[in-house]
Amino acid sequence: MIELHDLTKRYGKTLAVDGLSFQVPPGVVTGFLGPNGAGKSTTMRMILDLDRPTAGRVTLDGKRYGQLSEPLKYIGALLEAKAVHPGRTARDHLLWLAQSNRIPERRVDEVLALVGLTPVARKRARGFSLGMGQRLGIASALLGDPEIVMFDEPVNGLDPEGILWIRNLMKRLAGEGRTVFVSSHLMSEMAVTADHLVVIGKGRLLADLPMPEFIRRNSRSAVRLRSPEPERLLDVLAGAGLRHEPGPGGSYEVVDGDIATLGELLTAHGVVLHELSPQQASLEEAFMQMTADAVEYHAGDGPGRDAAGAPGTWGAGWKANGARPAAAVRQEEN
């Protein structure tokens, strides 16, 4: 279990991480999602005590990282591929790491086999591709057979086979009851890997909820209607008690509407339609809109400031309004 308590990191005038509090429980894959520059890597470095927080703290099952005597046996991390001296062999890289935490040498050969690097174990890292460097980083994370594993953008540079392999590996590790914390800037990658999702934007927590819940709330579906007689269209919709939102090009959208019911209803009232089409917003779009809101908020002068509430409650407020997709909230604010 990783616990962040009001974690904050300031670099000069920039607030890279802003009062982040969440927990990463064991037994599931927790995705850590945010656009580039959202503060994911900074947060991970603070978890490992590499960067010192400006405020707040991180605990690992109640302990601070610096209190761990042989940390690799407890938490393994891949922060950046190629954090290896180019002149050192893959095996020697893992060997010094193993020795520093009194991990038996045979474990080095085990993890090399596990990530498929046995054939190049005695080759110097200089000639490694990004994917091979990534595998070596994953090998070093697994070296101490740790309770907690943390991967920063692990699929970067991997080929499709490698991506599938790392997904299955993370699921297996979580299935063994370990804590798995993985960052990505790709919603699509998280959607297939993570059981739980933590979303940050500009260093702030935007969402912290189970993946199915996130999908349910954010897979926005709507029926788009366009008519040459919009007043009549809106009258009929209002008469049937259907909520609508303005769509592009003078159209209207009925969120979660049933296309057959709407078609029959409008035909019965003789409303001429130029368009009757189903609309589906992808998770990727939902994620982009969610983080775009965070960026907007940080501009600090939007009219939505009061509506969105205090920064700390924005995530919570969004959750309370679960039935309303992020996209809808945003349109109303505008």
Partner: peptide, 18 residues
């Protein structure tokens, strides 16, 4: 210095935080 140039210093400090 080669630990700093390769970024390996972060791997080292994660392994030995003291």
């Amino acid at each position: 210095g080669n630990e700093y140039s390769s970024g390996m210093i972060r791997v080292t400090l994660a392994a030995v935080p003291q």
